[in-house]
Amino acid sequence: MTPPVPVITVENLSKSYPMGFWRKRVPVLSGLSFTVLPNEIVGFLGPNGAGKTTTIKILNHLAFPDSGRVTLFGEEAGKSPNLRRRIGFMPEQPYFYEYLTGREFLALCGRLCGMERDAIVARSREMFDRIGLAGAEDKAIRKYSKGMMQRLGLAQALLHDPELVILDEPMSGLDPMGRMEIRNVIRDLRAAGKTVFFSSHIVSDVEALCDRVIMILKGEKVAEDTVGELMGCEILYVEIVLSPSPPPAVLFGCGIPPEAVSVQGSAVVLRAPDVDEANRWVDLSRAAGARVCSLTPAKRHLEDVYVARVEAGRRDGNR
């Protein structure tokens, strides 16, 4: 079986912006490469100013790279406008024609995508319900709140039922309900066989949603992997709760290091550095008369991995 044609391939993308008085070109992206496969949900992480929006603009042919290549569905990006019919895009902090109502705006988007009038009406109604904007259809966009704009941004990206959806910070500015709704929309897209590529600062959303994560720092990729792989099977520590337990001094006596022991109410909590150590300590403490009440391996959150990578990257950068 031939491998599927990637939906997005980015090869060696570089881009610089002229900055300061001398218009010196400062690199924003340097040699960025990654791929997104069909029906994947890929999260795009990076601190402020890492180059996420720049990359996404290049994917949408709004900005042009200094060098490197972008293909979408195996075709050179920007070659044919028809390619864009297969893509839905929501820009960062979207802003729309404020003199239109939500319904008029979606109608305009539908016409620009070459949709039929009936399809536009039906799809708009569906989108308003799906995206949590029902009731605001005939309100002027001028009167929309930030979160409503964000939702409308998603609605226009999905209106023409694109195969690839690119979202720049879809969750920013949303209340918890809104975030949940958007997470559900993204999950539905996966179920419908679509591909989603989105940037976000909300790492827990990325962790919950994405098949794979691409992390960039100062325009360079620092990680590209599945969420599971990134978070690792690696266990940070194992927490053992003993209750009832002999006094800590007895445990110290059996060879459990004092810094790993803490007393919480009537229970004693041990923090073992790894699984083997945890097993040994369980034996020791049970021999000392303790009852093991729970044993929890603490895994990393994507957030920890992200922070660690960003800090490591910053240290490398400063060296």
């Binding site: 603009k57 024609y97 226009q156």
Partner: peptide, 11 residues
């Protein structure tokens, strides 16, 4: 930035 929305459509 309304132009981003329009130009990301097949126009």
């Amino acid at each position: 930035k309304t132009v981003y929305i329009i130009l990301s459509k097949p126009v």
